[in-house]
Design a binder for these strands. Structure first.
Lengths: 152, 152
DNA sequence: TTGCATCCGGTACCTGGGTACAGGCTTACC
DNA sequence: GGTAAGCCTGTACCCAGGTACCGGATGCAA
């Protein structure tokens, strides 16, 4: 009797995920509850491996598990109706998000480079000096007067 | 009665952080335990506002709170001795880290763009088609380089 | 002195994405 | 049919960086 599907350990191995992760995904609604053996063991259809790859890919693209679950649902419900554009729309939203993050990280990178080439070696001292490239004030906090100025 | 320092609520307001965050930072070793009023209320020296700005700045540069604590300690201990270079070294390490993240995010951005311009509209369907730009199989670990940007 | 705002310590909870037991049942192989 | 591997549920824990709530004590002004 072996054409019955994948056992959870086999699926986990095949997809490269932890066994617990499968049950976690089931709780989160990413995987449907599979058929069970008479003794209660899960038996997954073999294309679940593909589904897990899809999930992992979407995660790598920056989608959260909730978003992935929505995305999969949208894909399932759309088959009785004309193709919708929600994956497209979500991808565009996510692209904007990723571009935001890229911009932020770029600022951080440039700031770190500036700090390195300015030779900063003490954060607290730099905060009190006016020649430091680190953006201590960028925090929407009222500027405070300081009298110490040595390093940099 | 005013030379006594900042009360925790005043400091929190001045620095733009939550009151609880101050106590959290104290537990984490980022803020030294301050002087207390006779009744046990915290009284902070006024330059703690600057310190909090420093902490928030370092966080925005991508340092974790543990790393910030180390950085501050290094700054404190170095005053009896020649200037050390640990902030420099750490900044260089962090820069490398940030550049890694940038590279990973760039791949993600390009992949999202490819998926959008290819018109993908169902993840599961795409996974079974051979012409989809989504990297369902490769990219075993996140920040690797992939230069494909073809369309369906 | 009363009243209210503030602060105290301790503990619990949150997000996100899982991982790790414990104690017991099932399945597979010989 | 025995034994080992595998799987079950439930619960708890991990990371980081906080936030929220509680009952009680303090600070300060009128």
């Amino acid at each position: 009797m072996s054409e019955s599907g994948l056992r959870s350990g086999q699926l986990a191995d095949a997809a490269g995920v932890n066994l617990q992760t499968l049950r976690y995904y089931e709780r989160r609604g990413l995987l449907a509850a599979p058929r069970r053996s008479p003794g209660g063991h899960r038996l997954y259809p073999s294309d679940t491996v593909t589904l897990l790859r899809v999930i992992k890919t979407a995660q790598r693209l920056g989608f959260t598990l909730n978003e992935v679950a929505d995305l999969l649902d949208a894909g399932r419900h759309r088959h009785h109706g004309r193709p919708d554009t929600s994956l497209q729309a979500r991808a565009r939203d996510k692209l904007a998000e990723v571009e935001q993050k890229l911009a932020g990280l770029t600022v951080i990178r440039d700031t770190l480079r500036a700090a390195i080439s300015a030779g900063c070696d003490d954060l607290v001292a730099c905060a009190s000096s006016s020649c430091c490239p680190l953006p201590f004030v960028e925090l929407a906090v009222l500027p405070e007067r300081n009298d110490r100025a040595d390093t940099c």
